[in-house]
Design a protein around this nucleic acid. Structure first.
Lengths: 239, 239
DNA sequence: CAGGTCAAGTGGTCTGACCAGTGGGTCGCC
DNA sequence: GGCGACCCACTGGTCAGACCACTTGACCTG
């Protein structure tokens, strides 16, 4: 195992994670009040500003309802949380939540082709060359992890070409969730990124400028791994 | 204009918005350093904890890179921001960014049918009744704004039925962005929510359990308003 | 019993201090 | 003169304690 940067978790980070854990794991439940900042500070053995910072960060992501003068209450994260909570929901209690994993694959399969279609409509003449270059790097790579990185770069360029702020922001969040786990997931996704041919077809389709062709080609890239992992997950659930 | 709750912006909120403005409007640019916390506190006339809280909140959304001992630098929000930044990007400099508005409509058109298809696959027998109930409320409503609320409730139930965490989280972010502007956008979207018939067809399609039918029906609900607003935006851009 | 009053508890903010990590400049050695 | 180790100034990280602003509910008053 290669050397890794030591993780330097700040005190507010720690508090944030702990409180988030209470909320996500249901120990506190939507609508229930949180202990006061002073009390939390005392219990956790940290200063009040540290607690405050953590709670404010949670409030920013709509996980808490902080009211001046009143008690801070927990909101229903399933109804209010954004995509940034995805990593935390994917691994709940040390285990991978298969339902969440499934939803990621399904969403990929819905959004990916849509983005590819937009990219086909809007991608300029230079796009196909850029994509091809990335694919060449992908094809030349010998390492699973590096292939993942290249595939991610490929999709990044497709999203750029789609020229859609919403899809760009979605992609940013999903990438932020995916990258930390990239090494762990590389073997699982190896099948997909090994199909350089399918990627080349997709590149040509996007370059052709026809949205429907691009949509179909993207689905052809994403479908196989989606299906096989999905059925693996189903088998896992039953065991 | 009806009475509204007075907005009580906290000091860190104010700082957050100001710094965010500098970043989003490009006054500081990706990679450039931010003034030190002490300096910012001095310039803005607030305490350092207030500045600190604002900066930490921005760091949490991947907009800043804060390093202990080093200088805090601005990250490229287009590459790292999540969906929560959408409202801020939609109205830049007091004006609506038509490109962003366009991307919202396009994303709706891609994701909506996908969600509907999943809902058709997974929705239980009670789903159709629940959706019909919401549609009855929508049909009975006389107010544009209230119709928007009902339509939102309808899609909320569809997303629930799709049983997909990723789409749920996406929907949460989009709803959080949409709701504050709901009253302003109601006239624009009135055409869509007026088509109760299309919604009923969609409900039946979802109830039938056939994903493809549901997908097509959802597109039929979303397409007309999407097309008309899109062309209005194009006209706006050219003027 | 309705109304206003008030006190306790909560979050909001500030001050000032000190700890901890970074980076550039400086000084001394080769 | 070149180069390395050291040091210090500056950055963010954390804390303690105080006070302000707001909400709530108990209490008191009419």
């Amino acid at each position: 195992m290669p050397l890794q940067p030591v993780s330097r978790r700040s005190v507010p980070d720690e508090v944030f994670d702990q409180v988030l854990g209470e909320v996500v794991d249901g120990a506190i439940g939507a609508g229930e009040p949180l202990p006061s900042e002073r009390r939390l500070a005392e219990v956790l053995g940290v200063s009040r500003p540290a607690v405050r910072e953590a709670l404010q960060r949670m409030a920013q992501t709509r996980l808490l309802d902080v009211r001046h003068g009143g008690t801070t209450t927990v909101r229903d994260f399933k109804r209010y949380a954004g995509l940034d909570l995805l990593p935390r929901l994917l691994v709940r209690g040390g285990e991978i939540d298969t339902a969440v994993a499934r939803s990621i694959l399904e969403a990929r399969l819905v959004v990916g082709p849509g983005v590819a279609a937009l990219a086909a409509e809007r991608g300029g003449p230079a796009l196909e060359a850029t994509l091809t270059e990335t694919l060449d790097a992908l094809a030349a790579s010998e390492d699973d992890v590096d292939r993942q990185v290249q595939a991610l770069a490929f999709w990044d360029q497709v999203v750029d070409a789609a020229d859609s702020m919403v899809f760009r922001l979605m992609f940013n969040s999903l990438r932020a969730a995916y990258e930390p786990a990239l090494a762990a997931l590389a073997p699982l996704m190896a099948e997909e990124v090994g199909q350089v041919g399918a990627y080349r077809v997709l590149t040509a389709a996007i370059g052709s400028g026809d949205p429907d062709t691009a949509r179909a080609a993207a689905e052809h890239v994403l479908r196989p791994a989606t299906t096989s992992i999905l059925s693996a997950l189903t088998a896992l659930e039953e065991s």
